[in-house]
């Protein structure tokens, strides 16, 4: 049997969850509401996160501009995404929502700008 401990992030209570993997499936305990179970299952099966960072920009008052993944990406790919972003340089003007890197690492998710240069 495989046991994992998690802290639920669905609300400020922060329930301490225990996830037990057994032959009959996955069992979640310690949650005070159904959202905790849902969170624990997605965390166990395929944890995903938004990545927010900056890329270099030319022709603007600042040398970097903020960007994010348009959708959450698998947690295990976060550092690979950061590596790609460290080599990206874009040119002003840029606007919120514009694609900075299309389909990064073939994850099916674009990197978009989160700030306007004008």
């Amino acid at each position: 049997m495989d046991t994992k401990k998690l802290i639920c992030i669905c609300c400020p209570i922060g329930c301490e969850l225990q996830v037990n993997k057994t032959e009959n499936g996955v069992e979640v305990t310690g949650n005070k509401c159904p959202r905790g179970k849902k969170y624990a299952l997605s965390e166990i099966e395929a944890p995903k996160r938004y990545v927010t960072s900056t890329v270099k920009i030319e022709g603007w008052m600042y040398p970097v501009i903020s960007v994010k993944t348009k959708e959450p990406i698998p947690k295990e790919n976060i550092f690979e995404v950061m590596n790609v972003l460290s080599d990206v340089t874009i040119k002003a003007p840029v606007h919120v929502g514009e694609i900075v890197v299309k389909n990064i690492l073939n994850l099916g998710v674009d990197i978009i700008a989160t700030r306007n240069t004008d």
Partner: peptide, 13 residues
């Protein structure tokens, strides 16, 4: 919706 800080400020601007 869930925005980053600069996205929130852009909307206010």
């Amino acid at each position: 919706e869930e925005l980053t800080g600069p996205e929130y400020s852009s909307r206010m601007i």
